[in-house]
Amino acid sequence: MDLFMNIASGICLLVGSFLILTGGIGLLRFPDFYTRMHAAGITDTLATSLVLTGLILQNPDALVILKLVMILLLTLLISPTASHALAKAAIRSGLEPMVKEQKDNQESK
């Protein structure tokens, strides 16, 4: 049972790290602000949940689990609010999102 828990938590932590790395690379690779926001969204939702789940599986202490769950819930509640405020401020300041049609893209090449 203990071994199973350790393996499950290891898998959660590894997949979470991979998703976090993907989000960081997306933050650098994507072309404009609004698409970068989606890349940051990956690291805020599933990656955070997986890393914290991996930590929950490692520790049997009830108070520690409660605090980890609280961090998870706070992150899941806060991150959409923050990105909504950011996106709304950006669009109101006149930052145009890059909307490209697939055809234009092929013609420009």
């Binding site: 998703l19 993907t22 994507f30 698409t35 890349a39 990956i42 939702t45 599933l46 909307v99 490209k100």
Partner: peptide, 24 residues
């Protein structure tokens, strides 16, 4: 739903910016 769309976005991050089609 979050897990499914995460897999989709991860795929597009690794495929690069030619594969995305942003829309508003």
């Amino acid at each position: 739903e979050i897990i499914l769309s995460n897999i989709k976005v991860v795929k597009h991050v690794w495929l690069g910016k030619q594969s995305i089609k942003p829309a508003l």
